[in-house]
């Protein structure tokens, strides 16, 4: 390997390492260059917004991510968070979309109301003592409007 080739190889190695490492010194995550915060940042006692379907007896069932709008749980979370922080029009649009997805799903058969609930948990205690939230608050709720084949019902 001559001097020019050595410089070429060392430059490629150092440049590639620097480009990938540089974001780790900053605070902003991006793609494809990341500061890889996923297992590093402390979680504490996080607040979650979750969607529950309430049946006629008032029993809540968690609405799965695929019915919220994305099979990817983190994208579904982003959709729920945005609806929870949105205005009434955005919240109504969210309800309408989830209601549509409930049509034809077994969960939609008994659901009469959707609620977006803000809950705070202690993640460790959730598994050690039980899934009781530290605090809980309904952000918004709306009736489920499911469209059955050949009929149109609105509870």
């Amino acid at each position: 390997m001559n001097t020019k080739q050595r410089i070429q190889c060392w430059s490629a190695l150092c440049l590639s390492a620097a480009v990938v490492l540089l974001p780790s010194l900053g605070k902003t995550d991006s793609f494809p260059l990341s500061n890889y915060p996923m297992f590093a940042a402390s979680r504490g006692r996080p607040i979650l917004n979750r969607v529950v379907a309430i049946d006629a007896l008032g029993e809540p069932t968690t609405v799965p991510a695929r019915l919220i709008g994305s099979g990817e749980v983190l994208q579904a979370k982003a959709l729920v968070d945005r609806a929870a922080a949105g205005n009434p029009k955005q919240q109504a649009a969210f309800c309408e979309q989830v209601s549509k997805r409930l049509t034809g799903d077994p969960l939609g058969t008994n659901a009469v109301r959707l609620e977006v609930v803000r809950v705070r948990f202690d993640p460790i205690e959730y598994f050690v003592r039980g899934p009781e939230p530290l605090e809980q608050q309904t952000v918004f709720s709306c009736p489920v409007v499911t469209t059955m084949p050949g009929s149109s019902t609105a509870p």
Partner: peptide, 30 residues
């Protein structure tokens, strides 16, 4: 030929740097 060596070196560097970056994030944040 060294012209085939630099891309492999760059890929290796990106690989190890991505794991090192994850360690730096942990040490920097916690």
């Amino acid at each position: 030929n060294p012209k085939y060596a630099w891309p492999v070196a760059a890929m290796n560097a990106a690989l190890v740097a991505s794991y090192l970056a994850a360690a730096i994030a942990k040490l920097r944040l916690v």
